[in-house]
Design a binder for these strands. Structure first.
Lengths: 256, 256
DNA sequence: GGGGATCGTTCCACTCACCGGTACGCTCCT
DNA sequence: AGGAGCGTACCGGTGAGTGGAACGATCCCC
C-alpha cells in the first residue's frame, strides 16, 4: 500500500524507520500507531518499536493522538546544505520582491521530476495558494516548473514530456507539444507564465536563477489571483530578483 | 567524542544513523567519511555502511568531498507539524514587522534550555546576526530567550538560573540574580531587551506569543546594530506582531 | 621516485539486536 | 455483556548488522 516516494528496503531497521517518517505528510501531521501500520504496511509490533525508538532519538514526538514529526527533525532539515545556503542567499531578494509587489513570492528548486518549494512569502489576505514550503508540484503546470524544465538538459525535457502529464485543473496543459512550445517561449522571454494550470484562480510568473554556466539552480515566482493580478506587470521585478540572486550564487562558485 | 545533543544508544543501527546525521552542523555541512568517523566515534566500517544506507534512503547526498544532508531531509523537516504550522501562521506578521522596521526579524521557540529559531528575515545589508533558522541559542542571553524564560513555569526558570550561564560576550549577564531581575522587568514591560549579550554590536527587543492560557508558544524579536538602532523604538511594533499572532494561535485551540 | 600517511572500499565470520506472531488490557462503542 | 479497535508486553529464533583486518588509490614530503 501507499508506496512512499523513496520506497525503502523494508528488510532493515533503517528502511523501516524511513518508511515511518515518510508516512507523515504535510496534511497528516499527526498519525496514530494504527495509521502508521496501515500506511507503511509493516507489522504492528515493528512500527511500535521503531516509532518508540524514533521518539527516543527525538525525530518523532508523542502526542495524545499518536505521533508527529518533531522539532528536532525541523532543525536537522534546516541544516541541509543546498537548500539552506540557497535560502539564506535568496531571502533578501525574495523580501525585496515581495515588498515591491505585495504578492505571494516563491523560491523553488527541481528535485527529480518535480518542483520543491524552498521558500514562500505569502502576505496577509492573499489568495491562498496551495503550495507549501517543502512541498512538491509537477514541473509542467507551474511557472517555476516550466522555467526549471526550459533551462534543463534536453534529456530531462524529453523525459518529462514523454511521460504522463498530470491534469490539475481544466486549464492544465497536458499536450506535450504545447508544453514544449511554452518552454521555448520561456527561454525566448526569459520568464515563464502559468494561468490557472495548477490551481484555479491563480496566475504566476517565474524567472530562472542561473549559475555561471547558465544552469538553472532554482527559480523565483510571483503569484496572484486572476482579475486584479496580471502576471505581465511583474516580469521585470521577477527577472531582476532572479538575476540578482543568480550572479550572487555564481560568485560563490556554485552552491557548496 | 563530541557527544551529540541526543546522545544516542550506539547499540542500534538507528542510534548510529541518528548520530551520523547529528554529526552535521550548520557550519560543517559537508563531511568526509573520516570526519564522520571522528565525530561519531563509531567504527569506520559501520559509518561507511550506514552512510551508504542513508544515501540510499535519500537522507544524505554524496559529494566530491564526502556526504551532506540531503534535500529530502529538508522536505521532511518542513513537515514537522508544530514548527510548520507556527511558521505559516506567523509569516504575515513577521513580514509586516519587517516592512515596518526594516530590521532583522526573528521567530523563536523554546526547546529544552535553548531557543530554536524557526524563522528569520534579514534584509539586505543588515549587520549580520549569527543566528540561523533552525539554529540554537542559550535562553539567558537573547531577547527571545528571556521572553520565553520569563513567561515559562517557575520550574524552568529556577532550573536555568541555577545552572551555568554561559558567557558569550563581555556584556553577557551571567549573574543569576541580574537575569532574574531582567525576567521580572520583562513581564512588567511585556517585552525583553538584549544589549550585545549574545553577539557584539547587536541589540534586540522581543515580545511573547501567548496562547489562550498565557503560556508562551514562541517569541518574536527585532534586531539591529548598536548605534543607529535603538530597541526601545520598536517595542510597540514587536508587541503588536506578537499579540496578533498570539490571538490567531489561540483561536486555533493551541497549535495542533 | 619511493616510502609513509590518509582515506575509501571490500571481505568475512560471529553474534546480538531485531523480528513478528501471539497474547493481554484498556477504552469506546453498540 | 460483548465486540471492535487500539496500544502495550512478552519471547524464542535468526539473519541483519557488526567491526577487525586487509587492500588499493591518492597525495605529499623527504
Amino acid at each position: 500500500m501507499a508506496t512512499t516516494p523513496t520506497d525503502p528496503d523494508l528488510g532493515s531497521v533503517l528502511g523501516k524507520a524511513v518508511a515511518v517518517l515518510h508516512a507523515f505528510t504535510v496534511d497528516d501531521h499527526e498519525l496514530s500507531l494504527a495509521a502508521l501500520v496501515e500506511r507503511t504496511g509493516l507489522p504492528k509490533t515493528s512500527v511500535y518499536r521503531i516509532a518508540g525508538d524514533l521518539v527516543r532519538y527525538r525525530l518523532l514526538d508523542r502526542t495524545a493522538l499518536g505521533y508527529r514529526l518533531s522539532g528536532g527533525l525541523f532543525e536537522l532539515g534546516m541544516r541541509a546544505s543546498v537548500e539552506r545556503s540557497l535560502l539564506e542567499l535568496a531571502m533578501p531578494y525574495l523580501q525585496d520582491l515581495y515588498e515591491r509587489t505585495h504578492e505571494t513570492v516563491h523560491l523553488g528548486v527541481r528535485e527529480g521530476r518535480e518542483v520543491v518549494y524552498v521558500a514562500k512569502i505569502a502576505g496577509r489576505g492573499q489568495a491562498a495558494s496551495p503550495s507549501r514550503t517543502g512541498g512538491r508540484m509537477p514541473l509542467h503546470c507551474t511557472a517555476i516548473g516550466k522555467v526549471l524544465l526550459a533551462w534543463a538538459d534536453d534529456d530531462l525535457r524529453r523525459d518529462v514530456l514523454t511521460g504522463p502529464l498530470e491534469r490539475r485543473t481544466p486549464h492544465t496543459i497536458v499536450a506535450p507539444g504545447r508544453v514544449a512550445q511554452q518552454l521555448d517561449a520561456a527561454i525566448e522571454a526569459g520568464v515563464a507564465f502559468e494561468r490557472e494550470e495548477s490551481a484555479l484562480g491563480l496566475q504566476c510568473v517565474a524567472a530562472p536563477v542561473l549559475d555561471a554556466d547558465d544552469r538553472p539552480i532554482a527559480a523565483i515566482s510571483v503569484t496572484g489571483p486572476v482579475g486584479r493580478f496580471r502576471p505581465e506587470q511583474h516580469v521585470d521585478a521577477v527577472r531582476a530578483a532572479a538575476q540578482g540572486l543568480g550572479t550572487l550564487v555564481a560568485r560563490r562558485r556554485s552552491l557548496h
